[in-house]
Computed example of a mutant assay.
Amino acid sequence: MGTYRAGAAIKTVGLVAGGYVGAGWAAFLLGRGLCVRAWLRRSEAGDELRAEIDALWPDLERLGLAPGADRARLEVFTSLEEALAGCDFVQENAAENAALKAELYARIDGCVAPDVLIASSTSSLSMTDMQAGCRHPERCVLGHPFTPTHLMRLVEVVGGGRTDPVAVDAAMATYTCWGKMPVRLSREIFGHIGNRLATALWREAVNLLLEGVASVEDIDRAVVEGPGRKWAISGPFESYHLSGGKGGMTRFLESYAAGIQRRWDDLGTPVLDAPTRARISELVEARLSDVPVERRAAQRGALLVNLMLALAPPAEA
Rank of each mutant, 00 (worst) to 15 (best):
A258L: 13
N97K: 09
H150V: 09
G110M: 03
R50H: 10
K246P: 06
L253D: 00
A132Q: 06
H241Y: 12
E225A: 15
A132R: 15
A23W: 06
R300D: 10
V16R: 10
A8N: 14
V13K: 14
A132L: 07
R187H: 14
P236N: 08
S123H: 08
Y105E: 04
P270K: 15
L303S: 10
G31L: 02
D115K: 01
P114K: 09
D164W: 01
P270A: 14
G247R: 07
G46Q: 13
A286Q: 11
E156G: 03
P313Q: 11
A72P: 03
A200G: 10
I189K: 08
E225Y: 13
S215P: 04
L304G: 00
G2W: 08
E156M: 09
P148T: 09
E48K: 15
S243F: 01
R50P: 00
T128A: 06
R107E: 11
G212E: 09
V155M: 04
R5G: 01
E188D: 10
G86F: 06
A95W: 11
V213I: 13
H150S: 02
A298Q: 05
A95T: 14
A26K: 00
S239N: 07
I233M: 13
V16G: 02
D47V: 11
W264I: 11
V183I: 15
G2I: 01
D218C: 09
D129R: 05
S121Q: 04
A113T: 12
Y175G: 04
L49A: 00
G159I: 05
S239F: 02
N93E: 12
G194H: 12
G301P: 05
A94E: 07
E75V: 04
R41F: 10
P292W: 11
A8S: 14
G179K: 05
G235A: 14
V166G: 15
F77P: 00
W202M: 14
L80D: 11
Y4V: 07
S120P: 01
L154I: 08
N195A: 11
P114A: 02
R203Q: 06
E48L: 13
V291M: 07
D290C: 06
G22T: 09
T78A: 13
L267W: 09
K101D: 06
H144W: 09
S186T: 13
R37D: 06
P148Q: 04
G212A: 11
E138T: 01
V293N: 01
D88L: 08
C87V: 12
G191Q: 08
P114V: 06
C177Y: 12
V166T: 10
L65W: 05
P236H: 12
D218S: 12
A99N: 07
L40D: 02
L253S: 00
S255K: 03
L74M: 02
P270Y: 10
I53Q: 07
R62N: 05
I108G: 03
V213S: 00
V166H: 06
R262A: 14
A72M: 12
L210V: 00
E81L: 02
L125G: 03
S79R: 00
A83L: 07
A85N: 08
V112A: 02
T250A: 14
